[in-house]
Write a protein that binds this DNA or RNA. Structure first.
Length: 576
RNA sequence: UACUCCGUGGUGUAAUGGUAACACAGCUGAUUUUGGUUCAGCUAUUCUAGGUUCGAGUCCUAGCGGGGUAGCCA
């Protein structure tokens, strides 16, 4: 599909872009715009991260050549981070079409410099080593409505704090015994300013620095300083960091020798209907086996969406459509589905596949005859060409395309009725064959030679129904998985309530393994990663994990819009 | 009963003191060898109350509603 690199297409303005325009107009940062995408490598990226990626990397593209976006791993907590995640994050960002060039960084690269800055702060009397227990610190922090109280260690000498801090680094202090705190204001209405923790002892191996350190900086400390060290101009994060901003600015102001003066602005994170987005909840879905992994096609992860058949262009388009504000909104997943349909409609090759085969015998068609019918590969793109599909006396149609007693408005095959075979001629149902249980097992039809493809006999009423089919003798069996929304509720967490559990709201029909689907023969050759539109059914993607040469497995990315299904649903609704 | 951010159609966004617009969703109709696509159209909006102003979605005040915040997580 349109997986090509991102073009710096015009993007609608938003409050962040307005801010940057103001900075540029005021001549700040010598006209540079340097952003960063700073994930912690503790999980897989999801569609919410894509919003941030498109923002930060998009900004760099829009403001080139004096602009760039860094990829920085915020790896300050060795107990949660793994190389596996570092790799998957890079893969996902690249897949989305973005490039950080030489600007791949790790907060852990700055551990030494960060340590030096901490000694500087201690020297200035702006940080101290606290020996209170974690419980005491919590108790003395106060509450949202009451101020905290100063630590008894708050006014210890600079020399003493420095000596203790060096012991912490040297590994002479056990975990939880001492921490380094900024000396700000224990009565601040902003909890983040009540002498926030800057460093803690963690005797854990780090995925990059190994055992070199047992003293690790906190996010609040490492983040602004890392930004400054890299020359970041605009540090963009989500709303929950809003009240970390004063601390961010405090550090930028009070640490001397920083090469840059970044500032932080916050935007609303993405929420989508019918899914959950927090890493903790996604992890639970994986761990408890509700899905088959981080890249299960039902997951809102980048890897899940990729396996589902979403294209990078469709995700970028989606991110452009949803905008950027500070409002905690809930985006309808239909917007995402629309984005991928738009891309796939223009680019996916068409194919005929029968999900639930029903045998049709064309009685007046010669037993030993085979003909080839020309079918267009993509009506939206003539350059995609055509292909030849075999047709013979026995074909399969979908069970959904035949009804003995159809509702009004039904255009498909029914006793005595006529439909057109897609790209082929019209057939009329003459007889229905049933098994002992009354189940229709075969439909016997006759075809009308005068209705061949492209031929419209004078005065003949137009057949309304056009159905897909495959030649019984030539069709190939394929594995098909139909995916639907993971949850039955728009907002699973909200619907579950305080005492409830969101996993109980998992859609039991979120995955349907279709047995016995039959495809036109060309699909046996479908290559991994290919996108198809199965006509009248939806868009399908050749699963990269489970497909084998000659034995493709198709994942349904999204169904086609189905206005008939709506009519049926409405009829059933009015009937009660 | 703290601080802080945010309230524009059903949903998401735009309008930078001057005709409230776009997209998604929904609904009509036309076209169509995909009940797809495309095209045309319809429905529907500024949280409330004051104030400033010739003029307020936008500025001010108050209220109401929602989010966030008391990790040695990020």
């Amino acid at each position: 599909m349109s997986d090509s690199a991102v073009s710096p297409a015009p993007v609608a303005s938003d409050f962040i872009r307005d801010l940057i325009a103001d900075d540029l107009a005021a001549g700040r940062n010598e006209g540079w715009v340097i952003t960063r995408f700073p994930p912690e490598p503790n999980g897989y990226l999801h569609i919410g991260h894509a919003k941030s990626i498109c923002l930060n990397f998009g900004l760099a593209l829009e403001h080139g050549p004096k602009a760039r976006c860094h990829l920085r791993f915020d790896d300050t907590n060795p107990t949660k981070e793994e190389t596996e995640y570092v790799d998957s994050i890079q893969e996902d960002v690249r897949w989305l079409g973005f490039d950080w060039g030489d600007h791949l960084y790790y907060a852990s690269d700055y551990f030494e410099k960060l340590y030096g800055f901490a000694e500087q702060l201690i020297g200035k009397g702006l940080a101290y080593v606290d020996e209170q227990s974690a419980e005491a610190i919590r108790a003395n922090r106060g509450t949202l409505t009451t101020p905290g109280v100063n630590s008894p260690f708050r006014d210890r000498s600079v020399e003493e704090s420095l000596a203790l801090f060096r012991k912490m680094r040297a590994g002479e202090v056990a975990e939880g015994v001492m921490i380094l705190r900024a000396k700000i204001d224990m009565a601040s209405p902003n909890m983040n300013m009540r002498d926030p923790v800057l460093y803690r002892v963690l005797k854990a191996a780090h995925h990059r620095t190994g055992d070199a350190w047992c003293l690790y900086p906190m996010y609040d400390y490492a983040h602004p300083l890392s930004d400054a060290l890299e020359g970041i101009t605009h540090s963009l994060c989500t709303l929950e960091f809003e009240h970390h901003r004063p601390l961010y600015e405090w550090l930028i102001q009070n640490v001397e020798g920083l090469p840059g003066q970044p500032y932080q602005r916050e935007f609303a994170r993405l929420s989508l209907t019918y899914t959950v987005m927090s890493k903790r909840k996604l992890l639970r879905l994986v761990k408890e086996g509700h899905v088959q992994g981080w890249d299960d096609p039902r997951m809102p992860t980048i890897s899940g969406l990729r396996r589902r058949g979403y294209t990078p262009a469709s995700i970028r388009h989606f991110c452009r459509m949803i905008g950027l504000t500070k409002f905690n909104s809930l985006t309808d997943v239909a917007v995402l589905e629309h984005a991928v349909r738009e891309d796939l409609n223009a680019n996916a090759l068409r194919a005929l596949v029968v999900l639930k085969p029903l045998k049709v015998v064309i009685e007046n068609y010669p037993e030993d005859q085979v003909e080839f019918i020309e079918a267009v590969n993509n009506p939206e793109n003539e350059a995609a060409g055509t292909r030849q599909m075999p047709l013979c006396r026995e074909i399969y149609i979908d069970q959904d395309d035949f009804m003995e007693v159809p509702p009004s408005g039904y255009h498909r095959l029914k006793p005595g009725g006529e439909v057109r075979l897609r790209y082929g001629f019209c057939i009329r149902c003459q007889e229905v064959v049933k098994d002992a249980s009354g189940q229709v097992v075969e439909v016997r039809c006759t075809y009308d030679e005068a209705t061949r493809h492209g031929v419209q006999p004078e005065g003949r009423p137009k057949v309304k129904g056009i159905i897909h089919w495959v030649s019984a003798r030539h069709a190939v069996p394929v594995a098909v998985r139909l995916y639907d929304r993971l949850f039955t509720e728009e907002q699973p967490e909200v619907a579950a309530g305080e005492d409830g559990d969101f996993v109980t709201l998992i859609n039991p029909g979120s995955l349907t393994n279709v047995e016995g689907a039959m495809a036109e023969p060309a699909l046996a050759e479908a290559v991994v990663g290919g996108h198809y539109q199965f006509e009248r059914l939806g868009y399908f993607y050749v699963d990269p994990k489970d497909s084998h040469p000659g034995k493709p497995v198709f994942n349904r990315t999204v169904g086609l819009k189905d206005s008939w299904a709506k009519v049926v649903a409405k009829q059933q609704g009015t009937k009660g």
